[in-house]
Design a protein around this nucleic acid. Structure first.
Lengths: 205, 205
DNA sequence: AGCTTAAAGCTAATTGGATTAGCCAAGAGA
DNA sequence: TCTCTTGGCTAATCCAATTAGCTTTAAGCT
């Protein structure tokens, strides 16, 4: 048996491709192994199991998304920037549905590397929102609002949730416009955090 | 062996409970059977398999959500109505995460019953938006925007996506405010559908 | 060139869930 | 009481994940 030249990274990349094809929920190591030209148990020489593969796809996806967003956000400002960012986000999700789904799962408690790539992504979004002059809690709220709106639309769209013939592009445009308007009216610095609501993993929005 | 008195509805209800406890993705017929006090294969006398059970949970969830929203929307108007509807939506999702996840999956092509309950839900939302005086495409866009925003926030929240201590309640409030403002400025009747974008299952947003 | 050894394959075996087949008892109705 | 449908059970099959243990590759030294 000649060696296949596998590496953990290669396995994750093939797994990401499988996830994009069949959906993250239907991702199977059997399919990944076949794609790698190797028996299923052989994968275990490179990755520890399905959970680790899913985490790997998540890291990959968040990194890709971050650099895509960063590229989309450079050179434009104001509402233009917001629309550019949002378009890039949706494009990525449509081009890589499996990876995108993986990108949404939160880091496990204590997974610093995963938390860090998430923080990088948030930083890129924060940079794109610079023009609104938000900071502190207002900036956090704005980032959350943007993520929620984009993720909601993109995930409903991906689930086939928009059956009517109206243009989803246009819906998306209206939604981003709504955020743009709202961001202009957010207080420059919102109230401080509310007590008793500390989350499990600070650093990710 | 005394009879357990099972019915398809009872099986679905127990399955929904399991899904709420362990997550829709980890729902297993084995767990449902145990909860029903019956062997796994016995379930097949009442339902045809896991897929049908998932569909059943989806129908149940959409119906419950619809009546919850309808109740929340009665008696209030304007921005109050929007906030009431949105709060009810989020409360349902937090109280029943498994069902909520099931409620999002789109009907299979040709599944008229499923499409119908979806249409009922949309009608309830449309009714709550009455005060904005939208119709035609604008109304569709508004409903989509609201669904996207609520689903996005609720699903990121459920995934543990908001780690920072800022109040998610407040984020949600800002988001709904943003929609309220946007709905006031939507054209009373937006442009007609864009050609070449017909979806698979008209009738669901 | 030849030796040593970790890494990377493989097959076999186990576990757990879904599904199907086929047997048997419960209990409703003639 | 007899009958027949219904609902429950066990046994068996399939598929994916995971673990154990064996073997070969090929890289690094003499």
């Amino acid at each position: 048996m000649p060696r296949a030249g596998l590496t953990p990274g290669r396995v994750i990349a093939e797994a990401a491709a499988v996830a994009d094809e069949v959906g993250l929920d239907k991702l199977t190591l059997a399919a990944v192994a076949e794609r790698c030209g190797v028996s299923l148990p052989s994968l275990y020489k490179h990755v520890h199991g399905l959970d680790e593969v899913r985490r790997g796809i998540s890291l990959l996806a968040v990194r890709e998304l971050t650099s895509t967003l960063a590229r989309a956000g450079t050179g434009v400002t104001g509402p233009k920037s917001l629309h550019a960012l949002s378009a890039a986000y949706r494009d990525y999700a449509r081009a890589h549905p499996g990876r995108y789904a993986a990108s949404i799962v939160a880091p496990a408690p204590g997974d610093q590397e995963h938390a860090d790539v998430g923080a990088d992504a948030v930083a890129v979004i924060a940079a794109a929102l610079q023009g609104y002059g938000l900071d502190g809690s207002s900036l956090i709220h704005a980032i959350r609002m943007w993520r929620a709106a984009c993720h909601g639309l993109v995930s409903l769209e991906g689930a086939g949730g928009f059956g009517l013939p109206e243009s989803v592009d246009r819906t998306y445009g209206h939604l981003i416009d709504a955020l743009d308007a709202a961001f202009r009216n957010l207080p420059a610095a919102d109230q401080s955090p509310v007590a008793g609501e500390s989350g499990p993993d600070p650093g990710i929005g």
